[in-house]
Design a protein around this nucleic acid. Structure first.
Lengths: 112, 112
DNA sequence: AAGGAATATTCTTGTCAAGGAATATATCAA
DNA sequence: TTGATATATTCCTTGACAAGAATATTCCTT
């Protein structure tokens, strides 16, 4: 599943709300559209996008579908985020690094 | 900074690539547009969006601007993700929970 | 079989975002 | 001062997407 696909699935406010809801447990389409105060077709459409992105899955219960979160996109996000950990933990000073790098590049330019 | 704003900033492929690039260190607009094979104005525009979302910041160096990542959006993402940790660590079985919840709801219905 | 409930799909419309091209702005160098 | 370089901004066009309304599909109940 493409990473940007996951991100744009989550970037839509109502879809993010759906994910927040599903965090507490599986829900039917009707319950989702009720709790979010959106119409059923829009809920279905948003769930379709989330499903395509691999964010949710569902099981069929006769007439209804019970949607729930999948774990994969979250592990995927976490994995991606890990690679930025030294940045957001600020183990080094961004400005320092910038000045170093700038220095290097200016020198390269002078070589030409 | 709104969470969905951060997400949609990152959801655009070229912008995500910019972020990936900046992970290795600060860069000027020109360097970014070169390495990404996009035109300078598009790079500027993407950087503007990233800046508005709080993902990047820049320092002015005379003629140029050196862009770098900010830590905040990443800590923000990580914080959000933490709330899903019991889901993506799969400490419980999704299906089990679904069946439980379903049971509860069906009973509620019969009460009416 | 018929009606009703739950959900999905289609069609339309309006809005927004991205890329291209051109231009504006600021700064440096000669 | 003039030209060149780096970056930002504006305008335009096009494509994607979200909501609304209407309809289709599936399954249950009686």
């Amino acid at each position: 599943m493409d990473f940007t696909t996951i991100l744009s699935a989550l970037a839509e406010p109502n879809r993010l709300k759906i994910v927040e809801l599903l965090r507490k447990g599986p829900l039917t389409v009707g319950e989702i559209s009720d709790q979010l105060h959106i119409r059923q077709p829009q809920a279905s459409k948003h769930l379709r996008v989330l499903n395509k992105a691999g964010v949710v899955e569902f099981t069929v219960d006769a007439n209804r579908r019970i949607y729930m979160l999948r774990s994969e996109p979250f592990t995927s996000l976490d994995l991606w985020l890990k690679e930025y950990r030294d940045i957001w933990e600020e183990k080094f000073d961004n400005l320092d690094r910038y000045l170093q790098d700038l220095q290097i590049r200016e020198n390269k330019e002078n070589d030409n």
